[in-house]
Design a protein around this nucleic acid. Sequence first.
RNA 1: GUGGGUGUAGCUCAAUUGGUCAGAGUGCCGGGUUGUGGCCCCGGAGGUUGAGGGUUCAAGUCCCUUCACUCACCCCA
Length: 420
Amino acid sequence: MEKITAIRGFKDILPQDALLFRKIESIARRIFDSFGFREIRVPLIEKTDLFKRSIGETTDIVEKEMYTFADRDQELITLRPEATASVIRAYIEHNMHAAEPITKLFTIGPMFRRERPQKGRFRQFNQIDVELFGEEKPQADAEIIFMLMHFLTGCGLQNLVLEINSLGCPACRPSFSKAVIDFLKGSEANLCPDCQRRIHTNPLRVFDCKVETCAATIARAPAILDFLCADCHDHFTQVKSFLDDLNITFAVNSRMVRGLDYYTRTAFEVKASTLGAQNAVAGGGRYNGLVSDLGGPAVPGIGFAVGFERLVSCLPDDGTNIFKTDLFVAALGSKAQKIAFGLTNQLRAQGLSAEMDYADKSLKSQLKRADKLNASFTLIFGDKEIEEQQALLRNMQTKDQQAIPLDRLPESIIKIIKER
RNA sequence: GUGGGUGUAGCUCAAUUGGUCAGAGUGCCGGGUUGUGGCCCCGGAGGUUGAGGGUUCAAGUCCCUUCACUCACCCCA
């Protein structure tokens, strides 16, 4: 029989890692809650047009990375490659803008992109996605970046680098784009083949090319920050100022461009040095035109996404990522087994984590098992104890054992373990 | 989509120029204590060497095909 494996790029999150995922999720929920963000859960599949319109027809994501299928009625549907589009769709669909001036949402879940897998990149991966609608003031930008950094450091991440940039707006970006294209065409000979292609497809991408000659050429290229209109310039200046006020250290990277078309003004990225080539652990930006582009009101928005797997992979090992068991019930003999079976399940029903062995094994092997399960206590009883109407509760760390009357077993055990 | 690397026990990896090379550690099970874990000692189970084909007296080792994993490019979280 040939064994069936998971699809390429799709990973099982095994219990050990799931424990970390849970931990990160709970930190996220707690912090986002303090900042007034509410959880929203949106579908994993949307109409294909939603992503085409939001992410951009000519982006790599839409052109070659989406999982798109024909539904049974031939309508094209797509496994979401990112969450922002879906959240905005829901925001519009439920008229949230009318219910309150500012809406803060977050969602956690899997995204799908059909790329070639490598370190830190999978075809199904999880993101924490945060969106803030209805506020265009620079405080919103600073607030959301502050919350992101607070969250990442709260998870225990170190050596993070925050980079920010402003991508301008429909008023000022075109003149910059034109200047860049003119410049690139003038120095086309110095660029790598990929970049020569990019001049025509997506000129701004030339900015993060890693080829040396390209980087050297780009160093002399026009910078977006010199082309910002007065409003965008002012907005960016204030964002930086508010970040300073919040004691957030950042680096302005005027060459940072982002892969999604919808960003305006503030764009930011957080890099972690331990990640390998795919070193961005979070990224985001402002999208003032996107809500209306998707058929909603003219409401500004800003958001970010955190790569869950990437975050988890650079988490320091603090030794807390282990499973524990409150009680192991070691029964000896069939009579004791029968009682233990009822007792174990009764204790579980009352919230203790309890385990026992159904095979009639030696005490030694049962204690070994208890040890493997990181049991705090082991309850030992066999014929002798039944006769004496008691059981032995062994503290696995101190090796202390105390006798407990059988008729008060559950209550006494719960009391002792909870008081510990 | 393109390029490199790697596939041997559940896991991490050995095996010289093709010739007792099917191994170790760890994990698992059992014993050393007729009922007391971690350390230590002993024993046991577990592999068509990813798969298929070829060369050879002989292939884990060489060749071809294929699959998978992995890293990088592209791009992104």
